[in-house]
Amino acid sequence: MTLQKALSKSLRIFGILKRVLKFSKKFRIGFILFLAILALGLASNFSPPYYSYLYYLPTGMQPKFESIDLIFGTTADGRSVFWVLTHAIMNSLIIAFVTAMIACHIGLVFGLIAGMKGGAVDKTVMFITDAFIAIPGLPLTIMLVMILKPIVNLIIIGIIISIISWPWSSRMIRAMALSIKEKDFITSAQLSGMSTLKIIFLEIFPHILGFHLTNIINTMLGAIGAEVGLAFLGLSILEIDTLGTMIYWIQRYGAMLRNMWWWVLPPVMTLIFLFIALYLISAGLQEYLNPRLRGGR
């Protein structure tokens, strides 16, 4: 029963999206940019079966507009840059999404517990959170991926990146829970004898939803960056195309030295646009949620 109600309240997320779209220009630009990149990623479903074969196409060919395979040219190992890019986008987004789902929900749970319970529980949770924040993320993930290299896949990469991402959401949610806890409607709910769990789900969660969404976007942003970072060192899943591994192979094949701009630019530009899109979405959301930032000088 409660679950159902909580779920229906979670559906407010679409309401928030609709209102932010109207409210913030930043959000609109970011959202459209993101949709465009996502569409490119989804195009991977239409890739021809030979997309993954090496040396199927001529190597290092400049873009030619005669067929879709050649529209962005080919790589030094004879693959279509266009199709590789679409798969790379998709896989990077999957990693980002897996990370966000894991990290933000761990953060949500810990943040809510800390914020709602207060006292020693709060102190303990915050201590752990702060300790995790102080761990430099990339070195730790490098170590973990290196150790786990034999079994690593998209999901495991996501899990590893989550380990360094969750504390940021946890902090944010705790701060929100603390400020909401003081509000009148929570006090009245407590006085009316509602259980803590019910209060969290029915009264607090809907108010935190927007911030949760912001966390998800920010974590995705961080995760995409982290995967690229790992790939730089050759620590991503090199058999799979991601935006990170694309750049790894570009480096490996010296594409910049050979001035194969058609191979270098697509992943780099996509990354930059993706970062900007996600950032604009998150900034727009935050402006909408935080009235102090609203309007403006």
């Binding site: 960056g225 970072g229 930059i272 970062f275 900007i276 950032y279 900034a283």
Partner: peptide, 16 residues
């Protein structure tokens, strides 16, 4: 706003 979300190393590629 353009530079903010981009990790150093991606920016570094552009610079290189």
């Amino acid at each position: 706003v353009t530079l903010y979300p981009i990790p150093y190393y991606v920016f570094a590629i552009v610079l290189t």
